[in-house]
Design a protein around this nucleic acid. Sequence first.
DNA 1: CAGAATCCCCTCTGATACTG
DNA 2: CAGTATCAGAGGGGATTCTG
Lengths: 137, 137
Amino acid sequence: MAAARQIAGPCQAWPGDGAFIREVLDRIGDKWTVLIISTLSTGPLRYSDLQASIPGISQRMLTRTLKHLERDGLVTRTAYAQVPPRVDYELTGLGRSLMDAVMAMAGWAVAHHREIAANRATSERTGVGRGRARVTT
Amino acid sequence: MAAARQIAGPCQAWPGDGAFIREVLDRIGDKWTVLIISTLSTGPLRYSDLQASIPGISQRMLTRTLKHLERDGLVTRTAYAQVPPRVDYELTGLGRSLMDAVMAMAGWAVAHHREIAANRATSERTGVGRGRARVTT
DNA sequence: CAGAATCCCCTCTGATACTG
DNA sequence: CAGTATCAGAGGGGATTCTG
C-alpha cells in the first residue's frame, strides 16, 4: 500500500493496452490507404482508374496497399477473364464503415489544420520543440 | 467534351487533395503519439511518469514524440528550475480535441478488430492478397 | 491492362552510453 | 531527473524494368 504518487495506467480509456487502436492505425497510418479508400467510396474502380485518380502513387504502392486492404476485408478484388485484363476493386461494408470513421478524423483535420500549421510555424521561430530550453520559475 | 469514362477525382469528399488528413495521420500514425496523448488525457504528467506509464517506450521515442506534439501545439512543456529537474507535460485544448477524434477511431477499432483479424486469418489460408489469382468469368 | 521483380534511399525505431 | 548523442537494423516508399 505504498502508492506514493498517482501513476496513470497504460491507457485507462480503452480495453487492454490499446492494441486495437494501434492495429487500425498501422493500417490507415500509411501514406496511401486513406486516399485509396476515399477514392473507392464513390463506387468500384479498376486498377488503372485508381492509379489515375490518385496522383503520385506508384504501382508498387497501389498494388501493395490494395493487397493489404483485401487481406483485411476492406476491399474486394474482382478479376475478369478477358483480354486485356480487367480488375475491379470495391469497398466492402467493413471498408465503408472505416471510411465513416476516417471522415470523423477528417472533420477534425479540416477544423484544426490551420491551428496546427500556425503552432508549427511559431515553434519554428521560437525554437520550441527543438532544444531551446525555457524554464518556469 | 470527350469524357468517355467517369473518373473519380482525387477525393471529392474533402477540400483540396486531402492533404489535411495526411498531415494529421502523419502525426497520429506513428507508434507512440496516440499512446502518449491518451496517457496525458487524465491530466499533466512528468517525463518519468510518462515513461513509466507507457511500457516499452524508449526515452529516445518519448522525447522525440513529445517534441513533435509540442511543436504542433498538442501538448505544453513546463520545466521547473529546480534540482533534480522536473518537467511536466500537459495536453492543450487542441490536444484534448484530438483525443476525442481518436476515441472515435478507437470506437471503430473495438467494434471491428475481430472482424479484421478473422478476415486476415482467412486470407492467410486461402492465399487472398498474396499472388494467388482468382478470376471471375 | 494489371501487375511482379529488383534496386536503393530514407525514415522510424530500438539499444546503448553519456551529461547538466 | 530529464534528457542528448551515436549506432545499427527493419521497413516504407519511389523509380525502373519486365511479363502474362
